[in-house]
Simulated scan of single mutants.
Amino acid sequence: MKITGKHLFLLKKLNIGVYDRLKTEFLFHSNRLEGSMFSKEEIMKLTIEKRVIGSHKLNDIIEIANSIEVFDFIAKIYNEQLSEKLLKEFHGILLNNSLNVFDSKLAGTYRAMPARLRKVELELSSPETIHFDMELLLQEYNEVKMDTRKIAEFHSKFEKIHPFHDGNGRVGRFIILKQCLDNDVDLIVVHSEYEKEYKDALYIAQTGNGIDTLVNIFEKSQRRFEKTIRKMMKNLDIYN
C-alpha cells in the first residue's frame, strides 16, 4: 500500500494509533540492523508513554528516542525536498545528546576524517569531496521521479559516500522512507531478517556489480511490509 508524506502527516494528526504502529515497525527494523536490542513493544512504550521498559544501556535509549524524533520530523516536513541541510538535520537529531563525545560533537556535520568500513574493502569518499559528492548525488536524483530502482541506486551511492562519521545506515534508511513518501512508492522497510542479504547486496552494488540484488531485497521488503500495513489499516480508509 502506498502512503504519501501527506497521508503520514494526517495519520499523525488523527492520533488513532496507526501512525505509532507504522513508526514502531520502521524503527524496530532499521535500528535492529545496527544492533539495537529494543523490541517492538519497548519502542511502542517509549513512543506513546515516554517510558522505558526492559534492560538497556542509556545510550541505546537515547538513540531510539532520537530515532523517534527523526521519524516525527520527516512526517512534519513532508513537502520539503531532500537537501544537504535536511540530511544534516536528520543526523543532528539522531545523534543529539549522545553519551559518545564524538557523536555528540559531530552531530549534524559531515565527517572531517577518512573512514573505512569493517570487514569490506571499499573506497569511501574523502572528507575533501563529501560536500561535492553529496551535492551531485542530490542534484542527480532530485530532478527525476523516483521508483524502487532509483531509490536503491541512491541508497547505494549515499552509503558509499558515507558522509557522516557514524549513523550513515540509519540516516540512509530515513532517506529511503522520505523518498518513498515523496514519490508515491510502496514503503521500503528493510526487514531485519534480511540483514546479511541487504549488506551483501549493498556491497555488490557499491563495487560496480549491479543494483539488481539490492532492488530485489527492497522489493521483497515492500511485499512483506505491505502485509503488515494492511493489518494496521484494517477497517480504516486513510484516504477518507
Rank of each mutant, 00 (worst) to 15 (best):
K2D: 11
T4W: 03
L10R: 11
K12H: 08
K12A: 13
L14G: 13
I16N: 15
N31Y: 01
R32P: 01
E34W: 01
G35F: 00
G35Q: 02
S36R: 00
S36C: 04
K40D: 09
K45D: 15
R51I: 07
V52M: 05
I64D: 07
S67G: 15
V70P: 00
F71T: 11
A75K: 01
I77L: 03
Y78K: 04
N79I: 07
N79D: 15
K85F: 14
H91M: 08
I93L: 11
N96P: 00
S98F: 06
S104P: 03
S104T: 02
A107R: 08
T109L: 14
Y110C: 05
A112K: 09
M113L: 13
L117T: 08
L117M: 13
L122Q: 06
L124G: 15
S125F: 02
S126D: 13
V144M: 07
K145S: 12
K145C: 05
R149N: 14
K150D: 08
I151V: 14
I151C: 07
F154Y: 09
K160R: 14
H165W: 05
D166R: 01
L177T: 07
L177M: 11
L177F: 12
L181F: 11
D184T: 12
V185T: 11
D186S: 14
V189E: 06
I204A: 06
Q206L: 08
N209M: 06
T213D: 12
I217H: 02
S221E: 02
F225M: 11
R230S: 15
K231D: 11
M232F: 15
M232D: 14
N235E: 15
N240W: 00
